[in-house]
Amino acid sequence: MSAGEKYLAAAYAVVLGAVLAYVAIIALKLARMERELDELAQLARGRRPAGG
């Protein structure tokens, strides 16, 4: 692999890496939101009046 080819691969890898990192961040964020939503649902269920 020539030096030019290495730099070319590095440039494309940087962009691909950034996209993958972003997708991973979004996945983590979604997992956090799901956890928070579960907590809030539990909290809401606990507040439901008895027999309601």
Partner: peptide, 17 residues
């Protein structure tokens, strides 16, 4: 800003070659 950072990095690699 994300795309701007990628522009600077890819441009820098191109400049080096």
């Amino acid at each position: 800003t994300i795309f701007g950072l990628l522009t600077l990095v890819t441009g820098s690699i191109w400049a080096k070659i």
